[in-house]
Each structure stands twice: as C-alpha cells, then as structure tokens.
Computed example of a mutant assay.
Amino acid sequence: MHSARSGLIQIKFDKSACLACPLAVHQRGLRSLALLPTRELHEIQQHNRLEQHTEDWHCWYAIRAGIEATLSRNVRACGLRRTR
C-alpha cells in the first residue's frame, strides 16, 4: 500500500507470517513496515536524524517547544480557539 500523503510505502504482514519469522519483533505486535520510496528520501531522513544530536538543533528546538507550550496553555486555559 502506498500512501500518497506521506510518501511512505506500508507493508503489512499476516499474523501467521510474523509468527513464523525467526526475529523477535512479532512479539511486540509489530506486523508492518514503513519504507521510504527513494534512496534520496532515506538519505534526507538519516541526515535529519543525525542533525538532531547537535547543539544548534537543540537550541532551535527549545525555542519551538517554548512557543508550542505557550500556545497549548492558551488553548487549554483561555479557550484560544474559540476566541474571536
């Protein structure tokens, strides 16, 4: 199954196929794979994941997390979505 929205290729396995697998992942209830359609997208994803371990990324994310927390508090406490 190909998801046009996310670009992922989803592969789902029957429970019987997973139980026959020698790997232990089926014990955690994982019976599907999500694959990126191209090598380029995979490399971009790998680069982004490595970048998350840098100090610059953590500084940027701290700013974003602060903004998200402020918005969330205002939505919950002040009804921001319902305010004109």
Rank of each mutant, 00 (worst) to 15 (best):
T54C: 05
R28Q: 07
S72Q: 12
C21T: 12
T70F: 04
R39E: 11
W60G: 07
R31F: 12
I63W: 09
R81W: 13
W57S: 09
C21D: 14
C59R: 10
A62I: 02
Q45S: 09
F13Y: 11
W60A: 06
F13G: 00
R76N: 07
R84S: 05
E40F: 06
L8T: 12
E55G: 02
S6V: 00
C78G: 10
L71C: 13
W57A: 05
L30K: 15
Q10N: 09
R81F: 14
E55A: 11
H53Y: 10
L41D: 07
A17N: 08
L35T: 07
E51Y: 14
L71E: 06
T38H: 07
R73P: 03
N74Y: 02
E51T: 13
S32F: 04
Q45H: 06
R49Q: 06
H58E: 14
A4Q: 08
A69C: 00
R31D: 08
W60C: 05
C18Y: 04
L23C: 06
T38F: 00
T70H: 11
L50C: 15
E43Q: 10
Y61C: 06
K12H: 08
H53R: 14
S32E: 08
G66Y: 11
L35N: 10
R82E: 14
A20C: 00
W57I: 00
A17M: 11
H42G: 03
G79H: 06
E51R: 15
R39D: 08
D14C: 09
L35A: 14
S6D: 06
L71A: 09
N48Q: 13
A62L: 07
R76F: 09
C18A: 04
N74Q: 13
K15P: 04
G7E: 03
S6P: 03
I11P: 01
I9P: 05
T70S: 08
D14Y: 10
Q45R: 06
E68I: 00
C59H: 15
C18W: 05
H42Y: 02
R82Y: 12
T83M: 06
A17V: 10
A20P: 03
A34T: 05
V75I: 13
K15C: 03
L19P: 08
D56L: 01
A69F: 02
S6F: 01
V25F: 07
A69G: 05
L41W: 11
R84G: 12
I44M: 05
N48L: 13
Q27S: 01
S32C: 07
H47E: 03
H47L: 09
L36P: 01
T83R: 14
Q52T: 12
R64V: 01
C78M: 14
R81I: 11
Q52S: 09
T70E: 12
G7K: 02
Y61R: 15
P22N: 02
Y61G: 02
H2L: 05
E40K: 04
K12Y: 06
E68N: 10
C59P: 07
L19I: 08
R81S: 13
C59Q: 04
R28Y: 01
C78D: 15
R31V: 06
R84A: 11
R28P: 00
W57F: 12
R39H: 10
H58Y: 06
T83I: 09
G66C: 03
L30N: 10
I11S: 03
F13Q: 02
I9F: 06
L80M: 05
E51H: 13
L41F: 08
L41V: 05
G66V: 04
R76A: 10
